[in-house]
Design a protein around this nucleic acid. Structure first.
Length: 307
DNA sequence: AAGACGAAAGTGGTTGA
DNA sequence: TCAACAACTTTCGTCTT
C-alpha cells in the first residue's frame, strides 16, 4: 500500500511504536491506541477478476464485507466517557478518547468519497433485495462500485444509476444475466438510462462480458412462469437445435428464450399467454410472435396441432 | 372479453465507408 | 463522423377463441 513507508510514526502521539495487525487489516499505534490505517490488505496481490485470465487468483487478507462502506473493518468508540465497567474516565483518558473519536470520524467519512460510498452501499442492498440478487453477487457488485468510484465514473451520473449498473454487471459476470428491461422495471428506472450507464461503466472499467445466450435465460423465465422442468428442458433442447442451425445469430437472447418457452409450454399443454411471457422476459408480445413463427417453421412445428 | 395477430412508424445501437 | 441498417418497440385496428 502506498503509505507503507510514509507512516512511520503516529500522527497523534508521535510514537514510533506501531503495530500492524494483518488479521484485522489495521495499523495500530501502541502508544495511544489510535487506528492509523484501516483496510491494510496486501495490495501487491491485487487481482483483477474481470478479465478471464485472472479469475483463478487467490484472495489475500482478512475477510471483508464490501457491502459496508468502510468494509466492516472499523472499530467503534463509544461516545460516553465511561470505561467498559461504567466508571467515568480520568481527565487525561478523556482527552485521549476525544482525540480518538475525532480521528475515527475523520477516518470514516472524512471526504465526499466516503459519503458517496455509504450512500451507495445502502442503495445497493435495497436494490439487491428488490431484484432478488444473491448476497454473493451483491458483494461483487459492491466491489465494482468501488472501482467505479475510484475511476471517477460517478461524476455526472446518479448514484442509483451506477449502483444498478454494477448489480447488473455483477450478475452478468456471475453468468446469471438479468434482462435489462426487468431490472429497469423493478427499480423504476428507465431502460435507456440503465443501459447507457451499464455500457459506460463497462467501457471505463474495461469489463468485457461474453455474449449472452438464450439458454441462460430459459431457466429463470420458466421458474417465474411456474412452468414444469419438463418445459424447461424441452426449450433448452430446442435451443440447441436452433443454435446449430444458426438461427440465433443477430437475435436478442431474451426474445429467443421467450419464444422457445412459448412454444415449449404450448406443446406441453401448459400454455402461457404472450403477455405473461413478455412480462418476465422483458420483450414485447410482437417480438415473441415474430420469433416463434420463425422458429416454428424452421423446426417444423405445427403450432395449430397444439392449440 | 381476453388473447393473438400483423402493419406501420419510431427508437437506439452497431457497422462500415 | 455520419448514414445505412437490423432488431426491437410502440401503437393500434382487426380477427379468433
Amino acid at each position: 500500500m502506498e503509505n507503507k513507508e510514509s507512516i512511520v510514526k503516529c500522527p497523534e502521539c508521535s510514537s514510533r511504536d506501531l503495530e500492524t495487525d494483518i488479521s484485522r487489516g489495521e495499523i495500530v499505534c501502541n502508544g495511544c491506541g489510535l487506528v492509523i490505517e484501516e483496510n491494510v490488505i496486501d495490495q501487491s496481490a491485487e487481482w483483477n477478476m474481470y478479465s478471464a485470465e485472472d479469475e483463478k487468483k487467490a484472495r489475500v487478507g482478512a475477510p471483508v464485507n464490501m457491502l459496508i462502506h468502510d468494509k466492516g473493518l472499523s472499530t467503534d468508540i463509544d461516545w460516553q466517557n465511561k470505561d467498559y465497567s461504567g466508571k467515568s474516565l480520568s481527565i487525561t483518558n478523556r482527552s485521549q478518547l476525544h482525540r480518538m473519536r475525532k480521528w475515527q470520524t475523520r477516518a470514516r467519512s472524512s471526504n465526499s468519497r466516503e459519503r458517496n460510498l455509504q450512500n451507495a452501499m445502502q442503495e445497493m442492498s435495497s436494490m439487491g433485495a428488490r431484484l432478488d440478487i444473491p448476497k454473493s453477487i451483491q458483494t461483487e457488485a459492491a466491489v465494482l462500485y468501488r472501482k467505479a468510484l475510484e475511476a471517477n465514473i460517478i461524476r455526472g451520473r446518479s448514484i442509483p444509476g451506477v449502483a444498478a449498473a454494477c448489480l447488473y454487471i455483477a450478475c452478468e459476470l456471475a453468468r446469471v444475466p438479468r434482462p435489462i428491461a426487468d431490472v429497469a422495471n423493478r427499480l423504476r428506472m428507465s431502460k435507456k438510462e440503465i443501459g447507457r450507464t451499464i455500457r459506460q461503466v463497462k467501457l471505463k472499467l474495461r469489463i468485457r462480458t461474453a455474449p449472452k445466450e438464450a439458454s441462460q435465460f430459459i431457466g429463470q423465465f420458466c421458474s417465474k412462469l411456474q412452468l414444469k422442468a419438463e418445459v424447461e428442458s424441452s426449450a433448452i433442447s430446442m435451443f440447441d437445435k436452433v443454435k446449430a442451425m444458426e438461427l440465433d445469430s443477430g437475435r436478442g437472447p431474451t426474445g429467443l428464450a421467450a419464444a422457445l418457452i412459448y412454444i415449449a409450454a404450448l406443446m406441453a399443454g401448459q400454455r402461457r399467454t404472450q403477455r405473461d411471457i413478455a412480462d418476465v422476459s422483458g420483450v414485447t408480445e410482437v417480438t415473441i410472435r415474430n420469433r416463434y413463427k420463425e422458429l416454428a417453421s424452421a423446426l417444423d412445428i405445427n403450432m395449430e396441432d397444439y392449440m
